Structures are given as structure tokens and as C-alpha cells.
Amino acid sequence: MKTNPFRLEGKSAIVTGANTGLGQGMAVALAEAGADICLVGRSAPSETLDMLAGTGCKTHSILADLGSADSVETI
């Protein structure tokens, strides 16, 4: 049996810009690899959360505008 060398069970990932585009794609790929995902963005990542629902990962969403370093403390 061949195993996947890119498994992330027991790990957590913070993904910025997770609402659309590259951030959304990274969130889905990390979840499919077994990681739990913290989604960070300026608006609610509803579509991304729907995409992650079938992966079995735990998710958390933080609304933050990372155009300012002040938001880093919130995250």
C-alpha cells in the first residue's frame, strides 16, 4: 500500500485571503491533506467553508484586514 508523504493530520494551518482565489485553493488543499484550517479574510468565507465541509477538518474563521499590522494581534 502506497502512503501519501504529504499528510497533515494533527496540524493546523492559518490561511489568509481564504475567501477566494489562491487562498481558497490552499485552504482546500491543506484540509484535504488532513490539516485543520483557520480562515482569515476581510469578509466571511462562506463558499470556502462549504468547500471544506466534506473534508472532515475543523475550521475557524477570523474577519481581519491584513492591510495593517494591527490585525495580527487579533489573529
Rank of each mutant, 00 (worst) to 15 (best):
H60P: 00
T59L: 06
R42A: 06
A29I: 05
N4L: 12
S43W: 00
I14C: 07
S71D: 15
S43T: 11
G67I: 02
E73M: 07
T55S: 11
R7Q: 14
I14Q: 03
S71E: 14
C38G: 11
G54P: 11
I37L: 02
A53S: 15
T59R: 01
V15G: 03
P5H: 02
I37K: 05
E73W: 08
A53Y: 06
T3D: 08
E73N: 10
K11A: 09
E32R: 14
T59H: 08
H60S: 09
C57K: 12
C57T: 15
G56D: 14
D50K: 15
S61T: 14
G56P: 09
G10L: 07
A29E: 03
G25P: 03
M1L: 13
I62S: 06
I62P: 06
S71Q: 05
R7C: 11
T59Q: 04
M1T: 13
C38W: 13
C57E: 12
A69E: 15
L39K: 09
R42D: 11
K2W: 12
T48E: 06
C38S: 14
S43F: 10
S46P: 09
V15W: 00
N19D: 05
N4Y: 08
A35H: 10
S68V: 07
E32C: 06
K58E: 15
M51C: 03
I62K: 08
T48N: 00
V15C: 00
S71T: 04
A13N: 02
L49N: 13
L49E: 15
V72A: 10
T55L: 00
L49G: 14
A27F: 09
T16E: 06
E9A: 11
A44Q: 14
G67R: 10
N19P: 04
G25E: 08
G17A: 02
A13Q: 01
C57P: 13
T48M: 01
T74D: 15
S12A: 14
I37F: 06
L30Q: 01
A33P: 03
T48G: 00
F6I: 10
A35F: 06
V28E: 15
K58N: 12
R42T: 13
G56K: 13
L63N: 08
S46N: 13
L63E: 13
A31C: 10
D65R: 02
T20E: 15
D36A: 13
G67A: 10
E73V: 12
D36E: 14
L52C: 09
G21P: 07
E47M: 06
A33V: 03
C57I: 03
S12V: 15
L30E: 04
T48W: 09
L52E: 01
N19R: 09
C57S: 15
P5M: 00
G23M: 01
L8C: 07
G17W: 04
D50L: 11
T55D: 09
